[in-house]
Write a protein that binds this DNA or RNA. Structure first.
Lengths: 187, 187
DNA sequence: TCGATCATGTAACAGGTTACATGATTTT
DNA sequence: AAAATCATGTAACCTGTTACATGATCGA
């Protein structure tokens, strides 16, 4: 369900095509929601048939027509209703946690690789978020409610990644310690 | 796919029935993976038909028979293969982030309620995790690799919750500030 | 006696992933 | 000439959620 409302919220800000929405969800909105273009086109078609958005063909000279979607009044109401309903924290589901539950079957080497690639991913994404924070939030003088909320959402993404990096420190410590003990036993 | 391997890992530790697995996933394994009993029974049936687990009927005097599942050799191999494959960080998907993206449509009051219930959930779960950490990890003298991995997985759950609580502090600060500004403007 | 726990499922549906498909234009 | 980008989809499949279903036993 949340994808539906993520789309409505994005279209409320400004009308857009499926393609544009896909781009935004891949970049500036990764920390808000993730969806593939297939999912987005499918959901837009449903929103259209439910009359929560209106599609308008935008002719282009050199390229095929685009479909620009905008919110209808009913769409805005549906979004507002949803915003006022409570939603629980989504359950945790990370394959790495599953791997850790496999005990001796998980070799320290395989684990070390997983940890290294996780760190890389976190550092990369965090760097990206820091750039966004600097350019869009810290440097701009804007102070609207919407702008503050957006910043807050980004901060959440950042704090999550930082927590993962902190955890990786703990994990590395544990791995080092385990390695030392093995060396001490083996020679 | 990960549910499949979460089940294999649990069964590798010790054979169990679907009911027992459901209980464990609801309590001590919430930070590892989440699944409903329907999903677990369905996946166990598939694992059985794929010969990765073996079902054995356990007769009981007063109650209907249980089905105790255990890993087969093929099941252990399948798990080991999976453990050695890389897996990316799962994408972030929290409805609260979507709500924050709705701007002025999200009333400070509705947001405050969401934040309060999130805090409650985090504090509760974190308290539960702390008890587990104290009784199973800090107090016990065990130092096997499996035990260390389990602790690490729990630590991840804890650090995530703590990060969310830190974020909630930031969010409250922002809300207070916004409220003050509104009061200053209105009188 | 009533609700909780034990114990197992089926069915329908919604949400997410992967693969396939098309075709023009712009950049390297 | 090849690769990336613009722009839109269909189809199959897997995973996760919700609703429904059954029936015994145990404790308050």
């Amino acid at each position: 369900m949340a994808l539906r409302y993520a789309l409505l919220a994005a279209l409320h800000k400004r009308p857009a095509t499926g393609y544009e929405l896909t781009q935004r969800f891949k970049t500036r909105l990764t920390h808000v929601w993730n969806a593939s273009h297939q999912q987005i086109y499918r959901e837009l078609a449903r929103l259209d048939s439910d009359h929560l958005v209106l599609a308008e063909a935008v002719p282009q000279q050199t390229r095929p027509d685009k479909k620009r979607y905008q919110l209808t009044i009913a769409g805005k109401h549906a979004l507002e209703d949803w915003l006022n309903r409570p939603h629980p924290l989504p359950p945790q589901r990370d394959p790495l946690q599953v791997k850790l539950s496999a005990g001796e079957l998980l070799s320290p080497k395989a684990l070390a690789e997983s940890l290294a690639s996780l760190r890389e991913e976190c550092v990369g994404t965090l760097g990206y978020y820091r750039v966004i924070e600097h350019t869009y939030f810290r440097a701009s003088g804007e102070a609207s409610l919407a702008h503050r909320y957006q910043h807050l959402a980004l901060r959440r993404g950042m704090l999550d990644l930082e927590a993962t990096l902190t955890w990786l420190e703990e994990a590395d410590e544990l791995m080092d310690q385990t390695n030392e003990e093995r060396l001490a036993v083996n020679g």
